[in-house]
Design a binder for these strands. Structure first.
Lengths: 135, 135
DNA sequence: CGGGATCCTTATGGATACTG
DNA sequence: CAGTATCCATAAGGATCCCG
């Protein structure tokens, strides 16, 4: 496939031009890192390296599938480091990489915002729900 | 008596999950801002109040369903304000509230992180994918 | 113990049609 | 114009079994 590059390029260019939204790797990354379990996982890992089963016990509610899947994604993105110790019962530890820690710091900022403004949000919801049927 | 088992266990698990997150509204907020369209919408609204159809045209790719749904959620949470002007063709404007703006700022911070570290992430991925099949 | 593979349920999102 | 309602496709997530 070499003859079509022109139109294909144009499509691609248009998609890239709309970097404001989908197609943009940054946005993909944003969605990735704000994954349902990724945040909790990274928050848990801020306390230091932990074993697979420890994480599973600590998060309590995550399935091993999602635990593994999320861990794999984070590892692949260079946010988490996986260390295997080939002892008799295999031992695997997970830890935040420096990159992962820098992101975890940001999560903390969001966490702070949430804790600081959650009341306002809740109040807004109550106000909204109360006035829903009112005229 | 077997109408449950599976669903009951799931409920139980979810209860435990909620209990674990009780003092942690952070994740709810994280999930909220990581919504597929919420981020784009708030980013778009940073340029000032805009009409429903303008937003739909600007985001271009969002369905009315998701546009309305996301807008409603943001409004309910007190992040966005909805203003109806009962003219002949009804006019509805949406704008960020101060609360919404403060969150949009945080969102930008995360976005900045993503843009700043996207290369490292991509490199990490390539490294990971390259060594995946190696033994 | 750690995790791959598989099957199944549910949440999410998009297209379409209709309304005030 | 600004929605609302409905149906449908897909993806996310979870339960279970099994293996190194």
């Amino acid at each position: 496939m070499a003859t079509v590059t022109a139109s294909e390029r144009r499509e691609e260019a248009r998609a890239a031009y709309n970097a404001f939204m989908k197609g943009c790797p940054t946005n993909q990354l944003l969605i990735r890192i704000s994954d349902k379990w990724a945040g909790l996982l990274m928050a848990a890992l801020k306390d230091g390296p932990q074993r697979y089963s420890d994480l599973g016990r600590r998060i309590a509610g995550v399935s091993q599938k999602m635990l593994t899947q999320t861990l794999r994604t984070l590892e692949r993105d260079g946010l988490v480091e996986r260390t295997v110790t080939p002892s008799v019962p295999v031992r695997v530890d997970y830890a935040l990489t420096p990159l992962g820690e820098s992101l975890a710091v940001l999560f903390s900022a969001v966490k702070d915002w949430a804790e600081e403004h959650i009341e306002e949000v809740v109040e807004a919801r109550e106000r909204y729900d109360a006035g829903a049927g009112t005229s």
